[in-house]
Amino acid sequence: MTEESGVRLPFDEEAMHWLSDVMRFALSLTRDRSEAEDLVQDTYLTAQKAWHQLQPGTDTKAWLFTIARHRFYRITERAERQVATDAPELESLAAAAYTIQHGSTLADELERQDMRDAVRASMYALPEVYREVAILVDWHDQPYDSVAQILGIPVGTVRSRLFRARRLLQEQLTAYAEDLGITGRSTPQEARRV
């Protein structure tokens, strides 16, 4: 969102405008609010240090997404090299406590949440190459050329990965809907009753 005159807006005006979008993207990468907040902070510190290098006319939102993605993978690589010392039983208890604490008691909210959870779980179950593209395009409304820039791949690859991601999501969500009995398909017994 640089000015048309080619003059770049101050960091506080331009980059901070995209804070909520970067946070949502960080959440989609980390799947944890605390880690996402840390990633956003790291992204913005990195962006502020490199602000003078940003060329006028550059898509700032895509630039911030690129920084967030690179920082996420750098942090993930470091974490993989570390030896885990936590007890798995404690992690399971903490996850259960979080679920209980943040659960909703209204039936209709649970149904909506179940569907959101199914979509989210299906998205996160995708292989990484498809998941990244689907999250950026479908959840963050990024255009194909921005996604190509963020991921460092050709636009045609973005399109093919998105097509494949949507097919896989459709298969997973159709199976979920059939399990719940909310699809238009009827069983032979139901067809005879009509």
Rank of each mutant, 00 (worst) to 15 (best):
M1P: 12
S5E: 11
G6Q: 03
G6H: 05
R8V: 11
R8S: 06
L9W: 10
P10R: 06
E13I: 13
E13S: 12
E14G: 09
H17L: 15
W18K: 07
L19D: 10
V22W: 01
L27C: 14
L27A: 08
S28G: 15
S28H: 14
T30W: 05
R31E: 08
R33T: 10
S34D: 13
E35K: 15
E35A: 15
A36S: 00
A36N: 04
E37M: 10
D38C: 04
Q48R: 12
K49S: 12
A50L: 15
A50M: 13
Q55C: 04
T58H: 07
T58R: 09
K61L: 10
A62F: 07
A62H: 10
W63S: 02
L64V: 06
I67V: 07
A68K: 03
H70C: 02
R71E: 12
I75F: 12
T76N: 13
E77F: 04
A79D: 13
E80D: 07
R81I: 02
R81G: 11
V83Y: 09
A84C: 11
A84Y: 00
D86A: 15
A87F: 06
E89N: 01
E91T: 14
L93C: 07
A94G: 02
A96Y: 06
A97T: 00
T99R: 11
I100K: 09
I100W: 13
G103W: 03
T105W: 01
A107P: 07
E109V: 02
R112C: 07
D114K: 01
R116H: 08
D117N: 14
Y124S: 08
A125W: 05
L126T: 05
P127V: 09
E128A: 13
V129P: 06
V129E: 15
H140T: 09
V147D: 03
V147E: 08
I150F: 00
G152S: 05
I153N: 10
P154T: 05
G156W: 08
T157R: 10
T157Y: 02
A165N: 00
R166C: 04
R166G: 02
R167W: 14
R167M: 13
R167I: 14
L169D: 06
L169N: 07
L169I: 06
L173E: 08
A175C: 10
A175E: 13
Y176Q: 03
Y176N: 02
A177Q: 09
I182K: 06
I182A: 00
T183E: 03
T187V: 05
P188Q: 00
Q189K: 13
R192D: 15
V194E: 15
